[in-house]
Amino acid sequence: MTATELRVLATDAALDFIAEIRRDHPDILFHQSGGCCDGSSPMCYPADDYIVGDNDVKLGEIGGVPVYISASQFEVWKHTQLIIDVVPGRGGMFSLDNGRERRFLTRSRLFGGAEACPLAATATSAGA
Rank of each mutant, 00 (worst) to 15 (best):
W77N: 06
C37V: 06
Q81Y: 03
G63V: 08
I69V: 15
G91V: 10
T106E: 07
R90G: 03
D97S: 15
S95E: 06
V86C: 14
H31L: 09
Q73T: 02
S95W: 04
S40F: 11
W77A: 15
R102D: 08
M93F: 15
R23W: 02
Q32S: 11
L59D: 05
F30P: 02
R102K: 13
D48H: 14
H79N: 12
Y45P: 02
F74M: 14
T106M: 15
R22S: 03
Q81R: 15
P88G: 11
Y45A: 03
D49F: 01
D54H: 10
I84F: 14
R22H: 02
E75F: 09
R90Y: 08
S41F: 05
D48F: 07
A47S: 12
V86S: 12
L96F: 00
G89Q: 10
H25I: 12
R23P: 02
R103C: 15
D48Y: 04
G35K: 12
P66W: 06
I28N: 03
M43N: 01
P66D: 01
T80G: 04
I69D: 02
D48Q: 07
M93P: 11
R109L: 13
S95T: 05
F74P: 00
R109Q: 11
S95R: 01
G60P: 04
R107F: 04
V86Y: 03
K78D: 09
G91N: 05
S70F: 13
A71I: 11
I84L: 15
Q73H: 08
R90K: 13
L82E: 07
G34F: 02
L105K: 14
V57C: 12
S40Q: 06
H25S: 09
G39T: 07
G63I: 13
I51L: 15
E101P: 02
L82C: 12
S40H: 10
E75I: 13
M43Y: 05
M43R: 09
V87D: 08
L96Q: 00
R107S: 02
V76A: 09
Y50A: 02
Y45R: 03
L29T: 01
G99F: 00
Q32V: 14
N98D: 05
D49Q: 05
C36E: 09
I62L: 07
L105H: 15
S72F: 13
L82Y: 12
Y50K: 08
S33H: 12
V65P: 01
N98L: 05
D48K: 11
P42E: 01
Q81H: 12
G112R: 13
R107M: 14
G89R: 09
I28E: 03
C37R: 00
P66V: 00
I62S: 00
G99V: 10
